[in-house]
């Protein structure tokens, strides 16, 4: 049976997390279908057809699928489910919202945030903020899975030529309605897709310091900006900057942690980064236990000198 991957997209293009989920799907079988559910999402469906390894794209288009409302998308997926052994979605806010609803409607126990595929029914997933890895075996006839993007390489975005098949959307469930969206406007790379991340913690002391001290460093490196939960709780920066157990999971080539002590909940979100740099005045801060390079000292002096050095 085929494997279905639910695409994360913005109606025009496919988001990278979809490519990671396709790689996870390839470990489950050769016949991989991608569902693009949206409103006027033809371009996204065309982009999905080009992903290497995808054998078919299902395109469901309706005004009530535009906001990816869980009630409507879950009904669509349940209708499609009988043809599939596995249904996967990236563990994005959309995937986390919709997939458990699908699993419950199918009476199966979802497997969340899978970080490795052992076999068709056995998967590895982090628990306790990544302080333990559980290998679990599912007895359910259909496996409903969300995929930890950082644990799988991205499939090539081009090279495929799958057929696009239109599928009908079930009627609007009428239970919920989209009102508005406020997306953080930024020229920076998206946090979960960035090669370099500059992240600040409680040691930043204010939101203003994120702008004055950290932004020049992020600008110089073309980096995304992140934060610890402490910085979000203190109101320095918005929640969508949060890296950690209950925020975003990232694994860039370079992660620069500034004024972050390194609580286990934060480490859970970034410890798979390739190179970690820590700048903190507390020599005993746990962040130094995972950092490849550390500087002990006052971040307000050190960060500007790093920017100066990078200009040389």
């Amino acid at each position: 049976m085929a494997v279905l991957v639910v695409a994360e997209h913005d109606n025009k293009s496919i988001r990278k997390a979809t490519l990671n989920a396709v790689t996870a799907a390839q470990k489950l079988g050769p016949d991989i279908h991608v569902l693009v559910a949206g409103e006027q999402a033809g371009d996204a469906a065309k982009a999905a057809a080009q992903i290497a390894g995808v054998t078919k794209v299902l395109h469901a288009d309706a005004p009530h699928l535009g906001a990816f409302l869980a009630e409507n998308v879950a009904a669509l997926l349940v209708g499609l489910s009988k043809n599939y052994s596995h249904i996967l979605a990236p563990a994005t806010s959309n995937g986390k919202n919709v997939m458990p609803r699908v699993a419950a409607l199918l009476d199966v126990q979802q497997i969340s945030d899978v970080s490795a595929v052992e076999s068709a029914d056995t998967f590895v997933r982090p628990i306790y903020a990544g302080n333990a890895l559980a290998t679990v075996k599912s007895k359910d006839p259909i496996k409903v899975i969300t995929v930890r993007s950082t644990a799988f390489d991205a499939a090539a975005a081009t090279g495929g030529s799958a057929a696009v098949e239109q599928v009908a959307a079930p009627a609007d469930a009428g239970l919920s309605a989209f009102v508005s969206r406020e997306l953080s406007k930024s020229e920076r790379p998206e946090l979960t897709a960035a090669k370099i991340i500059v992240s600040g913690g409680r040691g930043m002391a204010s939101g203003e310091n994120f702008t004055k001290v950290l932004e020049p460093l992020a600008d110089k490196l073309g980096a995304a900006m992140g934060a610890s939960r402490a910085a979000v709780d203190a109101g320095f920066v918005p929640n969508d900057w949060q890296v950690g157990q209950t925020g975003k999971i990232v694994a860039p080539d370079l992660y620069i942690a500034v004024g972050i002590s390194g609580a286990i909940q934060h480490l859970a979100g970034m410890k798979d980064s390739r190179v970690i740099v820590a700048i903190n005045k507390d020599e005993e801060a746990p962040i130094f236990q995972v950092a490849d390079y550390g500087i002990v000292g006052d971040l307000f002096q050190i960060v500007p000198t790093v920017v100066e050095e990078l200009k040389k």
């Binding site: 959309n94 989209f178 009102v179 508005s180 969206r181 997306l183 953080s184 969508d240």
Partner: peptide
């Protein structure tokens, strides 16, 4: 949500 806030 990823990227900001959404109201339903």
């Amino acid at each position: 949500v990823d990227g900001g806030l959404e109201t339903l």
